[in-house]
Design a protein around this nucleic acid. Sequence first.
DNA 1: ATGGTTGATGGTCAA
Length: 262
Amino acid sequence: MRIVTWNINSLRLRLPLLRQVVALLNPDVLCLQETKVPDALFPRDACEALGFPHIAHHGMKGYNGVALLSKLPLEDVRTPERCRRTDCRHLAARVAGIDVHCLYIPAGGDIPDPELNDKFAHKLDFLADLTGWLTADADPSRPMVLAGDFNIAPLETDVWSHRQLLSVVSHTPVEVEALAGMQAAAGFVDAVRHFVPPTERLYTWWSYRSPDFAANDRGRRLDHIWVTPELKPNLQGALVARECRGWTQPSDHVPVMVDVAL
DNA sequence: ATGGTTGATGGTCAA
């Protein structure tokens, strides 16, 4: 089963690029974040026409929004609530016996201090809430995949400059520690780093505020696919589709892909 | 230290 996660940054604007991503990667399950479309306006017909008869979405007006497009049936679709809010950041379904979670963790604003910045406080609260939920929900008899925009780059090689980003939201020690705690909740395996050694730089996001993303390559690895330990022997490959960042009118994130043997 | 861009929106806010 080929799983792809992509922060599409507006599903309706980038339907033509979604078609290109599907042609390039041929996913069985596609996890989308920042769909920015209310459920009533979700372009279901267009997504079905791309070859995904099984669709779930959880969206709102203007911001956030997550969706699952699948070639395989989606069972037990859930929209777990985080931090007592319904802000459309978590969608889960069982696919081929695997619980697939599509996640959009809050970006956290600019100031890395929860006392001064409500958005950063929300990010830390969201991580703590999700960690507690995963700890309680984890079940060794039920394999799980977490995929999405985690908005955290954990490794030194996940950012263009570890030193210069230590106080930049997405790479601060408090976030990296919180993410490590979340990973420990069920012993999740970072499926992409399973194939790409931590000595190798790897990014999935480049700011729009640079005229040429490839020129200085100031990226960050914010998008992740994790699997529970029992799936580790089933991992068959991984890919970050960097080329998509160079397409016309791109998302600032590129798709991340993992193959899991069923 | 600062500014730079994009998307949804129709004010600005979020990233």
